[in-house]
Design a protein around this nucleic acid. Structure first.
Lengths: 162, 162
DNA sequence: AGTGACGTTGCAATATATTTGCACGCATCA
DNA sequence: TGATGCGTGCAAATATATTGCAACGTCACT
């Protein structure tokens, strides 16, 4: 019952802790405790709870794509032909498992999918389109946009109130 | 000279470490060491180097937006009227500082910006459009798309080879 | 009001992880 | 050949995370 996060009664302490962890999750619990006025063990137990109930989904390092050669970010809007449950599931699967697809959203509106992709060269991207889009009978159309500036990136979620 | 990551000669050890850290950066150095065949101190020194040269940009917790009430993901394509350096910089600034804007890309093509936004209600979104788009004389047009399924999210970058 | 169950807290002790000092190995290059 | 630089592992030192425990508050029910 506590796998996907339904309701979570997060108090101000939890929210404050989450704010810090979203910025830097290597912050020592002692320091977090000082910041939120709680003891380190208390912080630790709250973090554990947040992890167990799925509020904290992951703890990750964010790396610079350029440093591993992924210099180009492209955005792709994909429109499919038929929207059956099976075909949509198959499309989700194929996009999600492609290493160059960093993010994939199933959307309303004209298009059906929106992808954020990281590639090393445009040649690599073109190659990918052959398998990902042209190779998929159910893809009607796709529109590619190249990113000039990654103005703001990340997974941070700001709290509704503050 | 080592602020923004230009060249980085990452060897197989570094890449293997980054793969692990991108999945779970709470993995003990000892465990990482066992996985990549290196001692814990060596792993630690490599991680420090990767952080110093900007390969590792951040260490963060990823939280479930729903758990803090941000239940709706919307994608927005924004087209501006005039593309002067100053006006573009101003737009970047206003998008980047908006808490509900999780990601912002400056793009080629018909539109000029692409935003990933997290909001609690559509009413909240509508309110935001008043300040962010309608309130900006330089915004010609914006197109809103609502996300039905966050199929794949995250900031992970897969290595070009493997 | 009294009482018991429950949940959370802080402190102190313990376990675990990170960081540093040091000597060694292995390249490159004069 | 010998000096230098860089990275390594081991072991010790340091810092951090985790757990046991007693105490406190809240709530429901007597």
């Amino acid at each position: 019952m506590s796998s996907s996060t339904g309701r979570s009664d997060l108090d101000q302490f939890d929210l404050a802790i989450l704010d810090i962890l979203q910025r830097d999750n290597t912050t020592p619990q002692r320091v977090i405790g000082e910041a939120v006025n709680l003891s380190a063990p208390s912080v630790q137990r709250r973090i554990r709870r947040l992890e167990e109930c799925g509020v904290i989904e992951a703890n990750v390092s964010v790396i610079n794509p350029v440093s591993v050669g992924r210099t180009i970010t492209v955005l792709v809007e994909v429109e499919v032909i038929t929207e059956t449950v099976e075909l949509i599931a198959a499309a989700k699967q194929s996009f999600a498992t492609c290493p160059q697809v960093q993010q994939c959203y199933y959307i309303t509106g004209n298009a059906d999918f929106f992808l954020v992709m990281l590639v090393s060269t445009m040649a690599e991207y073109e190659e990918l389109t052959k398998t990902l889009f042209f190779g998929n009978n159910n893809v009607k159309r796709f529109r590619t946009t190249v990113v000039m500036d990654r103005v703001k990136t990340g997974m941070a979620v700001s709290r509704p109130d503050a």
